[in-house]
Amino acid sequence: MPRIVHGAVTVEVDDDGFLVNPAEWDDQVALALASTEGVETLTDDHWKIMNYIREYYAQFGVAPMVRKLCKETGFKLKDIYTLFPSGPAKGACKVAGLEKPTGCV
């Protein structure tokens, strides 16, 4: 399996760069994952989005739909793309330590 090495952190990721073992996720792993998305620092705005995604995922088994994410966090879709250039699913969810989205999405 591919690995990401960032500073002192080494984590195993899948072929699309999503974390293989969700239990490994922490602030430092988030930074390592963010670096693969061209994001070098995680601001409060990044964390607001990631925290909402993680809470929703823990409760419902899935990331929130984009419209709900925007509504609940107050960010416009364009803002989310500015913060996470690959967008909510491939970018924000990845850095938040979720698995790759599955099903006909």
Partner: peptide
């Protein structure tokens, strides 16, 4: 298949 549970 999306992982969505009944509560979701």
């Amino acid at each position: 298949s999306t992982g969505m549970n009944p509560a979701g």
